[in-house]
Amino acid sequence: MSTLRPGSVSDTTPLQRFESQSSSGEEPSSPTASSIIAAAAAAAAASSNKTPNHNNNNVKLDLQLPTFVGNSGSHGYIVPNNKPALRGPRQIFGRILMDLCLLSCVGLPMLGFSLYGEAFKRGFFCNDSSLRHPYKESTMPSWILYLMCGALPFSVMIVVEFFRAQDKRGSFQKHRLGSGYHLCHLELPSWLLECYHRIGIFIFGLGVEQLTTNIAKYSVGRLRPHFFTLCQPRINGTDCSNPLNAGRYIEEFSCAAVDITSKQFKDMRLSFPSGHASFACYSMLYLVIYLQRRMQWKRLRMLRHLLQFLLLMFAWYTALTRVSDYKHHWSDVLAGSGIGLTYAVIVTSTMW
């Protein structure tokens, strides 16, 4: 029987042939699964022939496979496949500027109404008892309304999004992948980006809701229930006690009250619809829907429902006080509440 010489081609293993190709400068072919298995088997057989007294279990094969990475970002960053490419300060400030431009589309008209708007000059009948209620201070002052309907939603959304990012469950996995935006060589956390989304939508919806309310106020010019008490109207040197003014629809008049301010004089024609009711209903319903869709911890369900109840009760109480304080007619409050609820449902319809 013929024997093979040590230097013959038949004695070479696949691994040796792969190494000889690498050392000679040739481009090695890509190893397939079958070639890798054959190489491992040949190496094990060669080891057992040379050292027959050793245990075959001591043979180890170290195969180093290449590391799989994602696509390169626009700035040359190597990011995982499931993580978005990083965006720099230019993209961040560009997005903020675009959002501010959109907000100005509703903010500037509101400012124009507040500074230069003139309400429609609606008249009255002297025997109209709905305009003879006393003047009272608001049970729900403006600063409390701004605190509850402005600062509270911001705080709640920041807290909820922060704790959602700390949750280790699979449903919140995307919070740990980063936001894709970096500033000063630091990537912004994903929960901060989520806060920006939610608060931005809230502010835009609030601006649209208030603009709708102001358009109605200045277009209708309805007198408030305390009109006679606050204004004390004078009609051609007389007042409503004169029998000549009974049953007349009076459009030209002046206010005889000496302590009335210019703001009160302008505000007494802005009864319909109620701005307080629309503001409170929009903010509270938005926050109720937000908690329902974002605060999803099973152990806090009762707490979530309690918070939702308190928020709705605040909106309900605010609307009722506008009637009991004689600031609005009941139909004004109903219309304002409808405007706020409608916009809250619309802007949260795409929230997930």
Rank of each mutant, 00 (worst) to 15 (best):
S2G: 09
R5C: 09
T12P: 13
P14N: 13
Q16S: 15
E19T: 11
S22P: 06
S22V: 13
S23N: 08
S29P: 11
S29I: 11
S29W: 10
T32P: 09
T32A: 12
A38S: 08
A39W: 01
A40W: 08
A42I: 02
T51H: 13
P52Y: 02
P52L: 11
H54V: 08
H54N: 15
N56Q: 14
K60V: 07
L63D: 03
G70R: 01
G76R: 04
I78P: 06
I78K: 06
P80K: 02
N81Q: 10
A85E: 03
Q91L: 14
F93T: 11
R95F: 09
R95W: 13
L97V: 09
L103F: 15
L103W: 09
S104N: 12
S104R: 08
V106M: 10
L108R: 10
F120N: 12
R122V: 05
G123W: 02
F124P: 00
C126T: 05
S130L: 04
P134H: 07
P134N: 14
T139V: 10
T139K: 01
M140F: 12
P141K: 14
S142N: 05
W143H: 15
I144T: 15
L145V: 13
L145C: 13
C149S: 12
A151E: 13
F162I: 13
F162C: 11
F162E: 02
R164M: 12
A165K: 03
D167I: 08
S171P: 07
S171K: 13
F172V: 12
Q173E: 04
K174A: 06
G180K: 00
L183N: 07
C184R: 09
L188V: 14
L192N: 00
L192C: 08
E194G: 00
G200V: 00
F202M: 02
I203N: 00
F204A: 05
L206I: 05
G207H: 03
I215H: 01
K217M: 03
S219A: 11
L223V: 04
R224M: 01
R224Q: 06
F228N: 00
F228A: 03
L230A: 12
C231W: 01
Q232D: 04
R234F: 04
I235E: 04
G237K: 03
S241N: 15
N242Y: 06
L244Y: 07
L244G: 11
A246Q: 06
A246S: 07
R248S: 08
I250D: 00
I250K: 00
E251D: 05
E252D: 15
E252I: 13
V258K: 12
D259L: 14
D259P: 05
T261K: 14
S262I: 08
F265W: 07
K266E: 14
D267M: 03
M268N: 12
R269M: 02
F272T: 02
F279L: 13
Y282I: 08
M284R: 06
L285F: 10
R299P: 10
R299W: 10
M302I: 05
L303R: 14
L306P: 11
F309C: 10
F309E: 04
L312D: 04
A315V: 04
W316E: 07
A319G: 06
T321E: 05
V323H: 03
D325H: 06
H328F: 04
H329K: 01
D332R: 04
D332L: 02
G336F: 00
G336D: 00
I339T: 03
I339K: 01
I339D: 03
T342I: 10
Y343T: 09
T348M: 03
M351H: 07
